[in-house]
Design a protein around this nucleic acid. Structure first.
Lengths: 110, 110
DNA sequence: TATGTTGCTACAAATTAAATAGCACAAAGG
DNA sequence: CCTTTGTGCTATTTAATTTGTAGCAACATA
């Protein structure tokens, strides 16, 4: 499969700049959602699917594979969950929740 | 076109929770990249395209339309650029740059 | 040995994005 | 005027990705 690690080229970008790689991955459909849904603890494949509006197993598996390769997610007998790195990333994503709430309110007023 | 504002349903999600809407939008290909490339100032359509690896105008236009509807981007004689809201979001995205650098280094060591 | 659970694959259909060409409009120059 | 240039954007075809559904193999349990 294609390389996704920082330092390598991604989807046409010639820089390989890590943030590009990150955005490239996070910009794939369902990736943000999957990371988000793991925030309450580890989930097995089917439960994770359920949390993600029954995303197709094809896509879920593809995303999990990528997320594992990048070191954000791992898998054990309790199911899928964050690595230390993934937890750190998820913590950053969590701040968007509050931001989005404010955003929604500001849109209501306009 | 389909609704994207917070409070409405998005891509099967029945919650309409703002962060879901946000992730849904950011999770579309090129959206993060476009927001990222505007960080140095306003750009006209063609220059923005150039910055985004010559993304197809069809997609760029679709993304800009969404970003404008959501109040993240606007358009004037100087081209496309952030709204106040968009600048705030971009500021949050900018923190991922540093994070990704560290991530890249930690991957190198492993 | 039957039954259930889990992770995951196969595959066709639908949706989305990419690639390329080029149009309509406006401003500027001759 | 008439042409050129720059702009935002659409059209159209082709390629890639995602979806939806079915179901299998491995393992555990009864």
């Amino acid at each position: 499969m294609d390389q996704k690690k920082p330092g390598t080229r991604v989807r046409g970008s010639t820089t390989g700049r890590p943030v590009m790689v990150l955005f490239d991955v996070l910009g794939q459909r369902w990736t943000l959602r999957i990371l988000w849904e793991l925030r309450h603890g580890r989930l097995n494949f089917r439960d994770l699917r359920g949390r993600c509006d029954d995303i197709s197993p094809t896509v879920l598996n593809a995303r999990l594979k990528t997320l594992r390769e990048l070191g954000f997610v791992d898998h054990d007998t309790d199911g899928y969950g964050y690595t230390a790195l993934g937890a750190d990333l998820a913590k950053k994503l969590a701040t968007f929740d509050r931001w989005a709430e404010n955003w929604a309110q500001s849109l209501d007023k306009s």
